[in-house]
Computed example of a mutant assay.
Amino acid sequence: MKVLVATEKPFAKVAVDGIRKEIEGAGYELALLEKYTDKQQLFDAVKDANAVIIRSDIIDKEVLDAAKELKIVVRAGAGYDNVDLEAATAHGVCVMNTPGQNSNAVAELAFGMMVMAVRNFYDGKSGTELKGKKLGIHAYGNVGRNVARIAKGFGMDIYAYDAYCPKEAMEADGVKPVDSAEELYATCNVVSLHIPATAETKNSINYALVNRMPKNGLLVNTARKEVINETELIKLMEDRPDLKYVTDIMPVANEEFAAKFPGRYFSTPKKMGAQTAEANINAGIAAARQIVGFLKDGCEKFRVNKK
């Protein structure tokens, strides 16, 4: 069995060493395709691969067509919208993610961005504190739970909305559940987004929803850029000069945001939520272990596509 690590943005060496230990320890062959610059290189590399580990690399129908022996793809990270799930199912390929491995890294980044925003991006002017402010966590998954944990140390008043998470689970963490996204935004000074990009959520963060936030509201996005209705958010920030927006996913309209809202807007140059040494290692090794479990025992615990 051959396991390919195909990463345009490579794992750290220590992560690759950990992946190699897991894969070769199970008796499988490990192949690396790092820093590739052309899709044909990926086509060539997957031809005889039985399993593939990726990061933000695109696995679409063309790649799957080229991978005649492929049985499983594991995305080292939580999001998996870079994989064509329908095409994978049609090809009989199992797709998995590695939920939870990057969660603390993303949560810490969210707070770094919050502190920067409330302190006016460190421009020397007086800002505000997070202590005592109401924090809204939009989606209470692995990242949301870590955000809540950190928020307690800041002394924040913590609320959350997640239609798929039992209220009892939030309450057990000392978090106040609310009944709707509308209530969350109307209640909280700061809202931190952790929703996936789905048909239901794309463009759902719009004028009407964010306009419910109290004066001097702050929206923090370390989720996906597709969930933001950029046109409506720009209009809202024009209408409400008190609002700030910081994001870990550069918007399509980044230049317009930056030009119109200096001192109220910030985007990282590229998605950095999982860009820590620890998250890099954790996600890579978890992906390798999941592949071994699948190939040896048929374990599909983290499968995200249909059979």
Rank of each mutant, 00 (worst) to 15 (best):
E256I: 02
K271C: 15
A277R: 11
A259W: 07
K270P: 07
K271A: 15
P262C: 05
A259P: 07
K270N: 14
P269M: 02
A274E: 07
G263L: 03
N280V: 04
A258E: 14
A277M: 09
V252C: 07
E256C: 06
S267Y: 07
E278V: 04
K260S: 03
G263K: 00
T276F: 06
K270D: 11
E278R: 03
G273D: 11
Y265C: 00
A253C: 07
G263A: 05
N280H: 01
Y265I: 02
N254L: 02
N254K: 09
F266N: 01
A253L: 11
P251W: 15
F257Q: 00
G263W: 03
G273K: 12
A258M: 10
G273H: 08
R264Y: 08
E278T: 04
K271V: 15
F257H: 00
P269V: 02
P262T: 04
Q275N: 14
T268M: 12
I249E: 08
S267M: 06
Y265F: 12
I281L: 05
A279P: 08
I249A: 05
R264H: 14
F266W: 05
Q275R: 13
T268H: 06
A253F: 01
P269N: 11
F266P: 00
E256W: 01
K270Q: 13
Q275V: 14
V252A: 08
E256A: 04
V252T: 14
T268K: 07
